[in-house]
Design a protein around this nucleic acid. Structure first.
Lengths: 245, 245
DNA sequence: AAGTGGTCTAGACCACGGC
DNA sequence: CCGTGGTCTAGACCACTTC
């Protein structure tokens, strides 16, 4: 079989290891597999899906890094406790959908700026580059819980309207309409006190501690695609991350 | 050569892919490789280190997830900008050493508790389990910048003394003296206002916004090894994380 | 066209865990 | 002991970027 075209065994665009992941995720989400249950071993998965060991292994390794399963040498692979998908870059809309919360956003401002030098620098652009600046209030379960300010290079997203942003997820617009695949985000987190205007928007007292997150989101081409500054109500939002040794 | 013992090609315990990583890291840290420079390709690395493609590939893939290099299909692998080692679980001591800062700690308290039910629950232990509680003030560049409270199952770390904790890194004690390999940490981050006592320790005004991090650190066996609650001066510490889509 | 990373094969041996 | 994950081989084809 050596030398056989990959197209034969993979007519669509989905890699085999992702199919395997999908099958496992489905069994976890449907409740068929509960936390602590053993997942099919590498060898079993290889047989079931008719792939080599390395491919089955790749599927499990990636699932472990996403926190969905836990692997123990000599013992097996087990379903992890149902934590949030840490280390996974997801849009507000996607996150809320995952927790089955009613969520919406209100566009506070929408326009072009060309004098935000720090932001331009972070995006690795000339300091006078025209940037599209969008401020949005994020609301979940009828409570405001974050103010997010996004900056995008105006040239690359020409035609983007306030209405489009108000209607749907910014991520899906970028990935769908503009065909830019987002890859990862470097995030900087610290705490800050709510300024009067922000406090008012979030309906919290002045100087309330807020979680501040600055995201620099990159495309698969390694280019900075957008910059997001978020201020989160700490009583409604805690961030989860997994770090490896 | 099929079937040859692994021991022949790997007399010591270091896997080949880690050796390759080490060689690359060395060239980056010595300045021989600067940000943006191309790293040896998979095929070159395979030849140089006399390993198969999959092994060379494994080395580069892992380095990319640590943020050290950036890979672009069709183009090559490039040295990433010198960000902090996000997503890497490191001890305070290790972090400070990496930034060549003089760092020290002051042990504020050290003793056994058995009534911290929430902590015991997070460690997946009975609510009345005896826990070793260690409070420390972290100081960098002669400025206090964090208060950390660690909880460890007292039974598993019997013999641990206040003097030992004061002297060295808790991580190195756990991994060295007790032979427990730490694997990863799930961290929860939010913002909180400094209580009077905390503000005093950190030399900040009362109610100053602080970054609060709750770490649940796991061993390679998948067991919760310790719980750490940290309060960080936001003006001296921002957390960096990379999230993937 | 040449080179790169992404996916994949069909196996191998090792270290470890649980019975 | 047997099954598990961890490492590894010596290649293959594909999709993509750069020239």
């Amino acid at each position: 079989m050596i030398g056989e075209s990959m197209l034969n065994s993979r007519p669509n665009g989905m890699p085999a290891y992702k199919k395997i992941q999908g099958a496992i995720i489905k069994r976890i989400e449907s409740g068929q597999l509960k936390p602590g249950d053993t997942v099919d071993s590498e060898r079993e998965l290889a047989k079931i899906h008719k792939v080599s060991l390395m491919t089955a292994r790749h599927a499990l390794t990636a699932l472990e890094r996403e926190g969905l399963v836990q692997r123990r040498r000599g013992a097996g692979t087990f379903v992890a406790p149902p934590k949030i998908h840490f280390n996974k870059l997801t849009s507000f809309t996607e996150q809320m959908a995952g927790r089955s919360l009613t969520a919406c956003s209100k566009v506070l401002s929408f326009g072009i700026v060309d004098n935000e030098q720090e932001v331009a620098a972070r995006l690795a652009l000339a300091t006078d580059t025209r940037l599209l600046k969008v401020e949005r209030l994020r609301i979940a379960a009828d409570e405001p819980f974050a103010v997010e300010t996004c900056y995008l290079p105006a040239e690359e997203y020409s035609g983007l309207t306030r209405a489009a942003v108000a209607r749907g997820s910014l991520f899906s617009i970028i990935e769908g309409t503009y065909g830019i695949q987002l890859a990862y985000a470097d995030e900087e987190m610290d705490a800050t006190a709510a300024a009067p205007a922000t406090a008012n928007l979030l309906q919290v007292p002045r100087d309330e501690p807020l979680l501040r997150i600055r995201q620099l989101i990159y495309s698969t081409k390694g280019k900075a695609a957008l910059y997001v500054l978020g201020l989160y109500r700490s009583d409604r939002h805690t961030l989860l991350v997994r770090r490896f040794r």
